[in-house]
Amino acid sequence: MAGLLTCAALAAAVPSGAQAAGAASELTLKRTVGGVSSSASLSCDPAGGTHGHAQEACELLARVNGDFKALAPSAGVLCPSAGESVRVSVSGQWRGQRVFQEETFANDCEVVRRTGVLFAF
Rank of each mutant, 00 (worst) to 15 (best):
T6M: 10
S38N: 14
G17M: 04
N65D: 15
Q101N: 09
T104W: 01
G52M: 01
S16R: 13
S25D: 06
A54F: 00
S38D: 14
A21L: 13
N107K: 02
G34C: 13
A72F: 06
A9S: 13
R98A: 06
G48E: 04
L27Q: 04
G48W: 01
E102T: 09
L42G: 01
W94H: 01
V36L: 06
G66M: 09
H53A: 12
L5D: 08
L42A: 02
E102A: 08
S89P: 09
S25E: 01
H51A: 05
R95K: 14
V36D: 14
G49W: 01
A47I: 05
G83T: 10
N65T: 04
P46T: 11
E84C: 02
S38H: 11
S38E: 10
E84G: 06
S38A: 14
A75P: 00
A12W: 07
G83F: 02
P73I: 07
V33Q: 14
V111H: 05
A70Q: 14
A13D: 03
C7Y: 04
L29T: 08
T28Y: 00
A82D: 12
L61E: 03
T28V: 14
A2T: 13
G49D: 08
T115R: 11
L5S: 07
G92R: 08
S39H: 10
E103I: 05
V99Q: 04
V86I: 10
H53T: 05
M1A: 15
G52S: 12
Q93M: 09
V90N: 05
L27D: 04
S39A: 15
S37K: 03
V90Q: 12
L27W: 04
G48F: 10
T50H: 02
S91M: 01
P73K: 11
